[in-house]
Amino acid sequence: MAEETLTTAQSHGHGHGEHPPHLAHHFESPGQQFDACKFGMWIFLCTEVLMFSGLFCAYAVYRANHPEIFLYAHKYLDTNLGAINTAVLICSSFTMAWAVRAAQKGQQGLLIGLLALTLLGGFGFLGIKYIEYEHKFHKGLLPGAQYNPTVTPGDHGNGDKHAEMGDHELITSEHDAGNAHTAPPGAAPARHDEEPAVAPTGVKPTEQTGLEKTTLPQAAPPPAGRSMEHDHAHEHGMTGRPNNVHLFFGIYFAMTGLHGIHVLAGMAFIAWVLKRSIAGEFGPEYFTPVDLVGLYWHLVDLIWIFLFPLLYLIH
């Protein structure tokens, strides 16, 4: 042992003191260095949790005040895809934890394979997330002024019939969305008075036609008595659609987006650790980077464990 460290110290380039190449000078022992690294990592993870807690706070306050929006809008999310993604992340968390164990045991081949699998899990998660995001982008399920849905809740664009209609609706929706944006804010109520065919809740015409075309033909109210229903709609939501649904998608994209960035960062770290494992840098005496990257990856999993029920599983 002493001979080994001596040779490594010499090759290290500075001839003072005997220490393993991975031990920094200001630490007494690899054990102390490992504990200090982990402690620092946990403090960093705390700041991550606190950063996400800002978004969870926005979610909690908004849901407490407007549960109806969450009840309505969560049906736009595909629970199956969310559940599959949860499973993918849990599996990759498992392979990550196993990879740390393999590094501790000095099982080089296993370590490389497990890290590669973990990385694959990250790709799988982002791939599914891409499918979900793409669907929402195309169907106008977006935050703020971009919110202009061309599908009804529960339709996740899986059916062929819907796919065909979806394209048609997309064209009209873009057209109308353009009109809505160019129109001055005060024009909306005037248009409402002039055209009785406009949806009673003040929604843009496309939304209503979209509803009629797809699954809710009976949802279109009769032309008479529309202005009376207008006020009523604001209290309870016409055709079960509450106001300000776009805020759900603001929260959805902020939370899953920040989480997605963390998945990307985690994947970059895993790739880095994978490269170093292939170089054979890790073993029972030194596996700190594997361990710390693992902690980060588990935190990403941890956040998703809460995001999944909060966004997809609203009853």
Binding site: M1, P30, G31, F34, A83, T86, A87, I90, C91, S93, F94, A97, W98, V100, R101, Q104, K105, P284, E285, Y286, F287, T288, D291, F308
Partner: peptide, 24 residues
């Protein structure tokens, strides 16, 4: 052999993984 940190037994890792999948 100079190992740093604690090695989690394989049984516990698999058990936790299965529990997480079932709970999902």
């Amino acid at each position: 052999s100079g190992e740093v940190g604690h090695v989690v037994p394989m049984g516990i890792l698999v058990g936790v993984w299965l529990a997480l999948m079932v709970l999902t």
